[in-house]
């Protein structure tokens, strides 16, 4: 047992100024951080609001920020934090959601985004699932989305996501990871519709920062599922949205010289009209010696072009196998 200081962000939820309050707790290093919070509530301050249920990383209700990182407090151990933080554990409610009281947030925006992606199978009426029989998938088909069913909807990723925090249009890591699961489910008939439904800001505002990957207790790796979705969208919808124009433009850009031609990329991504807005920027940059002098093509460009000739094909876009057909035969 050691003495640990819990520094908790208190918030009365009635417009009072949030402030940190310190509690000293006797607790073992191998105990869960949540155990200390419950102790505080039982022994020191019964008004402390904390949400939890299963205490074994299943229900997903105990996510909060621990020393700034989104974590489930029922599984994060006291010792992992105290060692590097001077015996202090700073606890704040999750970010990107309004606080109801103390460590409890209103998850409505998180669940709204989840509902938005229609997290259920959408069947083709002309091709219903077989009645009274199992609708089986092959192990390879299940493998396409093996990570996402592990999600416990704890919103740790949502709290950690800087894109969610900066733009209300973005759907966020969990909803997109879940959506991906349905796009590659062979029983689902809304493949195109689903990809159309997340175009532009909803999908393409992901920053690829991978903060969600670190925050997720279940290794769902939402950032990687989002890149998977972008590849599917590029293929299915093509160069229509800015995000697609930019990634496909980048791909083609490198084929031409081996290194990035910044000016040409801006033109491809923004179009001629968008480029006009960038002209002033170009002058500003030149004034500061940042000339956009183009570098010559790399040596061995033919090797790079041979790679393109060989691999710039639909079957190579995605590493994993593409979703196979629509509808699965019953057995």
């Amino acid at each position: 047992m050691t003495q640990v200081t819990y520094q908790i962000l208190r918030n009365d939820g009635k417009g009072g100024v949030p402030h940190f309050q310190n509690f000293v707790v006797e607790i073992g290093e191998t105990e869960a951080i949540l155990t200390g919070l419950i102790k505080i509530r039982n022994e020191q301050d019964p008004t402390l609001a904390v949400r939890y249920s299963c205490r074994q990383e299943i229900c997903g209700s105990c996510a909060m920020r621990v020393n700034g990182k989104s974590r489930l407090v029922c599984s994060r151990l006291v010792g992992t934090e105290t060692k590097t933080h001077n015996n202090t554990i700073r606890i704040e409610p999750m970010a990107n959601q309004p606080v109801l009281r103390d460590l409890v947030v209103d998850q409505t925006p998180f669940w709204d985004r989840y509902r938005h992606i229609r997290p259920h199978l959408i069947l083709d009426p002309a091709n219903p699932l077989p009645q009274g029989k199992e609708s089986r998938m092959t192990p390879e088909q299940v493998d396409q989305f093996r990570e996402t069913p592990r999600c416990i909807a704890c919103a740790s990723c949502y709290s950690a996501c800087p894109a969610v925090g900066s733009d209300p249009d973005f759907l966020g890591p969990m909803a997109l990871a879940k959506l991906y699961r349905f796009t590659v489910d062979p029983r689902d008939a809304a493949y195109h519709e689903r990809l159309e439904g997340i175009q532009n800001q909803k999908l393409w505002l992901c920053l690829r920062c991978n903060l969600c990957v670190e925050a997720c207790p279940k290794d769902v790796r939402p950032a990687e599922r989002i890149v998977d979705l972008k590849r599917l969208a590029n293929q299915e919808i093509g160069k229509r949205e800015r995000g697609s124009k930019h990634s496909i433009g980048f791909l083609n850009n490198i084929e031409q010289g081996g290194l990035l031609n910044e000016t040409k990329l801006a033109r491809d991504s923004l179009g001629l009209f968008g480029m006009l807005g960038q002209v002033g920027k170009g002058f500003q940059m030149m004034r500061h010696g940042k000339s956009l002098k183009k570098h010559p093509p790399i040596q061995g460009l033919s090797e790079v072009q041979a790679i393109y000739a060989d691999l710039n094909k639909p079957e190579d876009i995605k590493g994993r196998e593409r979703p196979v057909g629509k509808g699965v035969k019953g057995e």
Partner: peptide, 11 residues
Amino acid sequence: SGFIDEANMTL
């Protein structure tokens, strides 16, 4: 830069 990965993983 991560953009080619979005367009073609294997490439």
